[in-house]
């Protein structure tokens, strides 16, 4: 197990292995996303309360789930880096941060767009929107710290510690924001209660979610590959690879 782990942790092995990943998974995700989008926007039934504006759910909800998963993946990579000192895991965490940040941003934007027709305002201090905002701020903090560290030529170990501290804190923040929300606002309408969603709605949702995950995976591996090749550009194998391209 550990031997396999270390082999995967070698940048060269990973680079060779992942050669086709960005393209394959990228294409697959495009197919799923296209399918989900067309189904969700054109064929899925409108909501009996919200009408057609519910269709933004197909963009918003999977993005929210994936933005959180990205954080988890980043934190796991960070832990692997700290425990086994595998540099590739550091680069993987680094590559994940901007992806997670953009997804969190997308969640906020689509949430606002969804809020306008349903609540009548662009922004509500809803518990979920607020904790997503905090998630975005965490991502931004991690990216800022990474930039500052790299300017000084340090590796990402402080960043990894921060990611782990954030992992412990995220549930607490989420809980406290829920608390705060119930304290300040009468629970009027929740977006998340979708008790009886018909299959025509959840199947495209599932397709979109799968498409998002594959998309993230494709972008992530391609970013990791970029990171590897730019760090290892002076090694013999990287030069050989560049020559063969």
């Amino acid at each position: 197990m550990l031997g396999w782990f270390h082999r995967l942790g070698s940048p060269k092995t990973f680079f060779g292995m992942s050669q086709s990943w960005p393209k394959t998974f990228g294409l697959l995700s495009l197919v799923l996303l296209a399918l989900g989008t067309v189904w969700g926007l054109l064929f899925a039934p409108p909501d009996y309360q919200q009408g057609h504006s519910v269709r933004i759910m197909y963009v918003h909800v999977p993005a929210a789930a994936v933005a959180q998963s990205c954080y988890l993946i980043m934190a796991i990579s960070s832990a692997v880096f700290l425990i086994w000192n595998i540099k590739l895991a550091d680069w993987a965490a680094k590559s994940m941060a901007p992806i997670g940040a953009s997804l969190a941003f997308l969640v906020l934007i689509t949430g606002a767009i969804w809020g306008k027709p349903t609540w009548g305002t662009w922004w509500v201090w809803d518990a979920r929107l607020t904790s997503t905002l905090v998630l975005l701020l965490l991502y931004l903090g991690i990216i800022a710290l990474r930039n500052a560290l790299e300017e000084k030529g340090n590796d990402g170990r402080p960043c990894a510690v921060l990611a782990l501290v954030g992992l412990v804190n995220l549930p607490i923040i989420k809980y406290s924001v829920d608390w705060w929300f119930t304290l300040h606002q009468p629970a009027s309408f929740t977006l998340t209660e979708k008790p009886k969603m018909p299959p025509e709605m959840w199947i495209p949702l599932l397709l979109m979610a799968a498409g998002y995950y594959l998309f993230v995976f494709s972008v992530w591996t391609s970013r990791i590959r970029n990171e590897i090749i730019s760090r290892e550009r002076k090694t013999a194998w990287a030069k050989a690879w560049a020559g063969s391209q």
Binding site: V134, A144, L145, A148, L149, K152, N154, I173
Partner: peptide
């Protein structure tokens, strides 16, 4: 976390302030 970085005051705030949400709320 930012000890080895020059002029890190703003950065500390950026990193730590989100974690102050729960204490503030309670």
């Amino acid at each position: 976390m930012t000890i080895s970085l020059p002029r890190n005051g703003v950065l500390i705030g950026l990193l730590v302030l989100p974690f102050y949400v729960p204490p503030l709320i309670f």
